[in-house]
């Protein structure tokens, strides 16, 4: 309740500041200063003509597709660098290095490869999150208590069974945390990719706002991007995480 009141006051203050600074005193230009009412009006217009939802839908589908590909690649890579000592020594440092590259840096490379296309964006998303996921997978497996594996091996578990019945379930809380982080990387990379290319999506709507000198649209899209991030984190990953931890008695 307190938070809601705080938000109402914050938005009220913002609107008040806009009236004072832009409309009354004229200190700021109206194209350089968004207002809550302006953002809301833009929201109504863009949702009535459906373009906001189309952009959101496209971005989400693209984001999830890229994320799923990144998860598959990340898991395989993570298992390989965990399972083979040589890969641990040779491939892991490279992955750690590439991981430090901000995802937007993949955009020029991707455009040269795929052109200004949806594939180019997908490529940026996958590159932006697969490596982070593979490192999380490697770490999560690393942190499985050795006694779990020992116990299973003295009960006759083979390598494959060890992964399916012991390592993955044991590492699950950490794996989910890794996926959560991977998703946030994917979502950021997606925006970096969409801003630079021309396929319909939230990033492109954002850039269109800039081209039209419509700061309310720019702000609206930014708010939508934040909202999607929060909703997927809170309703998706965090809820699953909590459920798992509770079941194991790690959270009361």
């Amino acid at each position: 309740m307190g938070v809601v009141i705080f938000l109402i006051i914050l938005i009220g203050a913002w609107q008040g500041f806009y009236w004072l600074g832009v409309e009354t005193l004229g200190i700021y230009k109206s194209y350089a200063f968004p207002s809550p009412i302006g953002v809301f009006e833009r929201f109504m217009e863009l949702s009535e003509d459906g373009s906001l939802w189309e952009a959101l839908g496209n971005s989400l589908i693209r984001g999830f597709t890229g994320f799923v590909i990144a998860v598959i690649i990340g898991f395989l890579l993570g298992i390989v660098i965990h399972q083979f000592k040589f890969a641990q020594k040779s491939v892991k440092p490279i992955i750690l290095g590439v991981q430090t590259l901000p995802s937007v840096c993949w955009v020029p490379f991707s455009i040269l490869w795929f052109g200004l296309s949806a594939e180019a964006i997908l490529f940026v998303v996958v590159m932006g999150s697969a490596f982070s996921i593979s490192i999380s997978v490697d770490n999560a497996i690393q942190n499985v208590p050795p006694i779990y594996k020992k116990a299973a091996s003295t009960m006759g578990a083979g390598k494959k069974q060890l992964y399916w019945h012991v390592i993955f379930p044991a590492a699950l809380p950490e794996l989910i945390a890794g996926l959560k982080q991977g998703w946030s990387f994917a979502w950021r990379a997606l925006m970096a990719g969409e801003v630079m290319t021309t396929s319909i999506g939230l990033g492109q709507t954002l850039i269109m706002g800039r081209d039209l000198a419509d700061i309310n649209q720019v702000t609206l899209v930014m708010l939508v991007i934040v909202a999607v991030g929060i909703i997927i984190d809170k309703l998706g990953f965090s809820m699953i995480e909590k459920k798992i931890l509770k079941k194991r008695g790690l959270l009361t």
Binding site: I147, Y148, K150, A151, A152, S153, T154, M155, G156, H165, V166, P169, A170, L172, I244, K247, R248, G249, L250
Partner: peptide
Amino acid sequence: PGPDRTVMFQEHGLYPWLSVMDNVTFG
């Protein structure tokens, strides 16, 4: 290691994601 020589450890080594029954039937 093999199932003909099962070990019971000092720390139980049970799996926290399984129930008592599922732990016992694991092997």
